[in-house]
């Protein structure tokens, strides 16, 4: 009898939770985790597979990710081959039906954005190229707005009950974000046309947004660390162009950048790249504000 009482008690406590269970979102990168939280509010539970200091190309398909994937209702990733080294394995091993490609629970941010620079020729001799185009879309806030809209539509489709809630939050978010974009653009006016050197071709969208002129990459080829001979070329190019800034993501090796900076008297700018990439970048908005501030600081 006592056992039965406990059972009933357990059910009455648990049932309401079960009825309005949160939608579980597995985000591959912190920017999508942050966006999912902005739109989903307290109706979603979000796991980020990577932190802001990790290179999303190179992530281990570690056990904790498998456990998170197993319980996910939605997989929210960049796509475009960015996660090719680890996401497919997780998807197969977790074998979670709702997040397989073709199901609403499979959401790739790159499908809402036109990708820049798809290579005309695809050859691994060119390094780890992405046939679909440059996948680092999150460095342009206007892309975030486009993805937010696509994500909200999908979330509303999966969790119909809370569709209105999500739409409302999207409206708020977009409005706030637009304000930030406008303010950032005017703050970064002076950057138009400024020549920069980057480590990996990971700033293409940011450069387009703010009008920065990328003249060289430190990496010899995508995914292949800098070589001495390549750096000599970069040095000549940077001198000619009058490069004043070298852009690095939090996870980029700074050896080559330090050398180049010493040679040409440029400054190394570590940009957040994504949410949590630098101190004080816990939200998407703060990430872009920090980015612009880092670029415009004398």
């Amino acid at each position: 009898m006592k056992r039965l009482t406990y059972l009933i008690l357990a059910f009455t406590v648990l049932m309401p939770h079960m009825a309005q269970a949160e939608t579980r979102i597995f985000a591959c990168e912190p920017e999508w985790a942050a966006l999912a939280n902005e739109i989903g509010g307290d109706k979603v539970a979000v796991t980020s597979a990577t932190s802001g200091t990790e290179d999303p190309h190179h992530v281990r398909a570690k056990p904790s990710l498998l456990a998170a994937m197993r319980r996910a209702d939605v997989v929210f990733c960049t796509g475009a081959g960015l996660e090719a080294g680890w996401l497919p394995v997780l998807m197969q091993q977790a074998a979670d039906a709702q997040v397989q490609p073709g199901n609403p629970g499979n959401l790739m941010a790159s499908s809402f954005v036109r990708l820049m620079n798809p290579p005309a020729k695809i050859d691994r001799a060119m390094g780890d190229v992405h046939p679909e185009g440059n996948p680092h879309i999150q460095t342009d806030p206007r892309n975030i707005v486009a993805v937010a809209k696509g994500f909200t539509e999908r979330l509303a489709q999966i969790d119909v009950e809370n569709a209105g809630y999500y739409q409302g939050r999207l409206g708020d978010f977009t409005q706030r974000f637009q304000g930030m974009i406008t303010a950032s653009e005017s703050a970064a006016k002076s950057l138009k046309g400024a020549p920069v050197v980057v480590y990996h071709d990971e700033w293409a969208y940011l450069n387009r947004w703010l009008g920065l002129n990328e003249v060289a990459t430190l990496e010899a080829k995508p995914g292949i660390p800098p070589t001495a001979s390549h750096l000599q070329d970069v040095l000549a190019t940077s001198r000619n162009a009058g490069v004043k800034m070298i852009l690095l993501a939090p996870f980029d090796d700074d050896q080559a950048a330090k050398w180049l900076a010493g040679q040409i008297g440029a400054k190394i700018v570590r940009l957040p790249f994504t949410v949590g990439g630098r101190p004080g970048t816990e939200t998407l908005q703060a990430t872009f504000e920090t980015t612009v501030k880092s670029l415009t600081q004398p």
Partner: peptide, 15 residues
């Protein structure tokens, strides 16, 4: 109408 988002290349729908 949603607020103006971005110049053409970004706002365009999926490739």
């Amino acid at each position: 109408t949603p607020p103006p988002v971005a110049p053409a290349p970004v706002a365009e729908a999926a490739p």
